[in-house]
């Protein structure tokens, strides 16, 4: 944390207005323990009825306001609820965004138990063994399949129709794996035939490594590429030199 704050301080001095951009691109990571599928169906039903049924229907069959959840699988429920995207905030957001989860871990497990009890199909929560995952292969897969939307360093990116590919930093390993398998929202899914278990673990490992990208060159400037570099070059670089000119040279 100290290294990041130091870098941020340097940036404030150097980049001025640009630091705003950096902080906006770097929401603090919120680690979430991965879900286990040993929740209580009855408690889940109660939670579902009060929290979810107004949009998804009493038996998750879907309504005009929300899609059916039959057969979406445990991974889907866990992803949407544990990232705080569900329940949706009232008000017309263009897409569900990450926010502090409304449910505790136990409650989420109960919800998963209830929804999967209605239809056991759909992808389960992926089990991950990241200890032996191939980081480099993960990088290759990430750049080939994920970087187009989320950016090479996972800071997120703009899509059409006002959609955004979210930054990956706040996501836990489990949530990344779930997203890959289910393809939440406008994201394509990558099933077991596309990404093997090994490949999934490799990608997840690489995404996790992007939480702390190797910024051996100094402050990462938000990892948003040449645009912030240009701003820093103008404001901090040329700006400082213009001040020097102004000091050395005559004013009138």
């Amino acid at each position: 944390m100290t290294r990041r704050s130091a870098a941020l301080l340097v940036l404030l001095v150097l980049g001025g207005p640009f630091s705003v951009l950096v902080t906006m691109l770097h929401p603090a990571a919120a680690g979430q323990p991965a879900g286990t599928a040993d929740g209580d169906v009855e408690q889940g039903r109660a939670l579902f009825t009060t929290g979810c049924s107004s949009c998804h229907g009493l038996r998750a069959e879907g309504t005009r306001r929300g899609p059916s959840l039959l057969g979406v699988g445990a991974a889907s429920v866990d992803f949407w609820v544990s990232t705080g995207r569900m329940p949706l905030k009232t008000g017309g957001a263009r897409q569900a965004v990450r926010k502090p989860p409304a449910y505790q871990r136990d409650d989420i497990d109960d919800l998963i138990a209830y929804v999967t009890s209605l239809d056991p199909d759909g992808p389960p929560i992926p089990e991950l063994d990241l200890a032996r995952a191939d980081l480099a292969e993960g990088g290759e897969l990430f750049r080939a399949n994920c970087a187009a939307c989320h950016g090479a360093v996972g800071i997120g990116g703009a899509l059409a129709s006002g959609r955004l590919a979210p930054p990956l930093r706040p996501a836990s390993a489990a949530q990344v794996a779930e997203a890959v398998r289910i393809g939440p929202g406008t994201m394509p899914n990558f099933g077991p035939d596309t990404f093997s278990q090994d490949q999934l673990e490799a990608v997840v490992t690489y995404v996790e490594s992007l939480d702390h990208p190797d910024d051996r060159g100094g402050s990462g400037l938000g990892h948003a590429g040449p645009i912030p570099e240009g701003f820093v070059g103008w404001l901090a670089g040329l700006g400082a030199l213009l001040l020097a000119c102004y000091w050395i040279g005559d004013r009138e």
Binding site: A147, A148, L159, A160, P188, N189
Partner: peptide, 21 residues
């Protein structure tokens, strides 16, 4: 550029370089 962004919901492809859809 490689038209790499597939938006499933709208089933549209977006080019990340110049935003052709």
């Amino acid at each position: 550029c490689p038209v790499g962004l597939y938006q499933v919901e709208s089933r549209r492809l977006l080019c990340p370089c110049h935003q052709s859809l």
